[in-house]
Simulated assay, not measured.
Amino acid sequence: MENENNTTLSEQKTESPKEDSLLPIFEKGLFFHDSYFEDIRKHFETAIDQILDTWGEATSVSDLMSSYRRIRERNLQQENQVMAFSEDDQNHKVVLDVHDFKSGDVKVRVEDNQVVVEGRVEKEEDEFKSMKSFCRRFNFPGKVAMEGVTSAMSSDGVLTIAAPKIPQAA
Rank of each mutant, 00 (worst) to 15 (best):
F32Y: 05
V82E: 02
G119A: 11
D156M: 05
Y68L: 01
H43A: 15
P167V: 07
N80F: 13
K28T: 01
Q50L: 09
T54H: 10
K42C: 08
G142W: 05
C135M: 12
F85I: 07
E125I: 15
T46I: 13
R109C: 06
F32P: 03
Q168C: 08
K42W: 06
N75S: 13
S155T: 06
G148F: 06
E57Y: 09
T150F: 01
E45S: 09
E15K: 08
L52C: 03
A169R: 10
S67G: 08
Q168D: 13
Y36T: 01
S62F: 03
N80T: 10
G157L: 11
D63W: 06
R72E: 09
D49L: 04
E57P: 04
A84Q: 05
K13D: 13
K143C: 08
A145V: 01
R109E: 11
D49W: 06
A169Q: 09
K18R: 02
N139K: 14
F138C: 04
V98R: 03
G148A: 04
M153F: 06
V158A: 07
Q114I: 11
P167F: 06
F85R: 11
S130K: 14
S35D: 06
L159V: 01
D39F: 04
V98Y: 00
N80G: 07
G148S: 06
E73D: 12
R120G: 13
E45C: 10
R74T: 09
R136D: 09
I25L: 02
T46D: 12
R74L: 14
E118I: 13
V149T: 05
K18E: 10
K107G: 08
I25S: 00
D63V: 00
W55P: 03
D20H: 08
D89C: 06
S66W: 05
Q50T: 06
V106W: 04
P164W: 02
D20I: 09
P17I: 04
G142P: 00
F26V: 04
E125S: 14
T150Y: 01
V82C: 05
A58V: 09
V108K: 04
K13M: 13
F44D: 00
M153D: 03
L30A: 07
E79S: 12
E87H: 06
N91I: 03
Q50K: 11
N113C: 12
R120W: 12
A169K: 11
F44E: 01
H33D: 05
L30H: 04
F37R: 00
E111Q: 12
I51M: 08
I48A: 00
K129C: 12
A152F: 00
N3G: 11
S151Y: 01
S67R: 10
V116G: 01
D156L: 03
T150M: 02
D39P: 00
K123P: 10
A152Q: 01
G119Q: 06
R70M: 11
V158C: 07
M146F: 13
S67K: 12
T59N: 05
S60I: 02
N3Q: 13
N6L: 13
G119N: 08
S35W: 02
E11R: 14
Y36I: 01
C135W: 05
S62Y: 05
P164E: 07
N6R: 15
G142A: 05
E122R: 15
A170F: 12
V95D: 02
F37L: 02
D34H: 00
